[in-house]
Design a protein around this nucleic acid. Structure first.
Lengths: 198, 198
DNA sequence: ACCTGAACACCGTTCAAGT
DNA sequence: ACCTGAACACCGTTCAAGT
């Protein structure tokens, strides 16, 4: 029933749309990700997209799902704290390579079932590391939110401390322009994990 | 030289624009925060705003600065870990009351000098708690990013664990729809702080 | 000198008309 | 039956014309 006879594959499909959108977001940035731009990339009319998606919001959801599916899975993340940190670092680095992903996830109101394998691995790992039952989900959320924060602050965010104060204490750069984001995240995550497992 | 004689105060000013924008964002949400809407709220023409701000981006920056200025300051945040957690919780709760704030901060590429007093207090507190020199900024960043993550996940984000797996381990809700966000953040922050001070 | 209506170049989305 | 050009209702921004 899925096979329409004689139907040449249509120019547009959900898959081709997502692929094109992903490509545009990666190379031209999220602000270039317009319905018209996607249609143009596929050689179709701007109105044609609406045969396959209901609106732009759904396009963003599909993109988020596509990213979530590709999150890593490590069944042995619970073997050591170090391995748990590495697990999340992999996820962080993957998402950092697609800066639009965290933005969509944070802005959207999605429940990403596609991230379930990643989450399940993390949860089982945390359990193996000694995080008993009810705390597990809380710990997972803490790690997830912290990762999200680091990803969204990939913009230079942060603030510099003013130098108008008595002691010259806050002269350091509080924003992470120069530091290696990934290492910074791993450092913080290791501390968080340690604090949760105490 | 600042006083133009006979100049009745102009209808629009940077202050009135920011105030109106803040009001709109709070009551109608960020998507309603258009240049036209702000002008309308102030009873001016849509083009008139551009006499006071250079573009919409600057309006968002002014909004972010306005929020940053109102971040709490507690010179005694370093008296105890508990007080440090309370300090950040206050900041979190304040920002949570203006959901657009975290969004602007995350999206923008600002360096918010207005947050310097907040940051300086936190840094001095961390130092008092025993976080020696170079680690301080890193720790501050970790806390800030974690806070940002929790704020941006105020949307129902998160993901539910699928129930298709062997043991029924991940049945908990991994998204924080029901839980008290503030308490959740405080819990995580306390762990993070503990891990950093070990 | 200051303000702003109208216009411009974009959006997302719809729908009637094309094939 | 499927596709889509043209139109519609919005944006942010500019600029010439108004006072």
């Amino acid at each position: 029933m899925n096979t329409k006879r004689r139907g040449r594959p249509p120019l547009l499909s959900r898959e081709s749309i997502v692929a094109a959108a992903r490509q545009i977001a990666d190379t031209e940035g999220m602000e270039a990700l317009t319905v018209r731009r996607v249609a143009q990339a596929l050689g179709g009319g701007q109105a044609s997209l609406y045969r396959h998606i209901s609106d732009r919001g759904e396009l963003l959801l599909l993109l988020a799902q596509d990213v979530a599916i590709h999150l890593p899975v490590d069944e042995r993340a619970g073997e050591s704290r170090q391995r748990m940190v590495a697990y999340w670092s992999t996820a962080h680095d993957y998402l950092a390579r697609h800066p639009w992903a965290a933005r969509i996830i944070a802005d959207g109101e999605y429940v990403l079932d596609e991230a379930a394998p990643f989450a399940a691995s993390a949860m089982r790992g945390l359990e193996a590391l000694g995080l008993e039952r009810p705390e597990g989900a809380r710990a997972y959320r803490a790690m997830w939110n912290m990762m999200l924060g680091y990803l969204l602050n990939a913009h230079p965010v942060g603030h510099t401390v003013g130098h108008g104060h008595a002691s010259p204490p806050g002269e350091e750069e509080l924003h992470g322009r120069e530091v290696d984001r990934g290492a910074d995240f791993a450092w913080a995550l290791e501390r968080l994990l340690h604090g949760m497992l105490r």
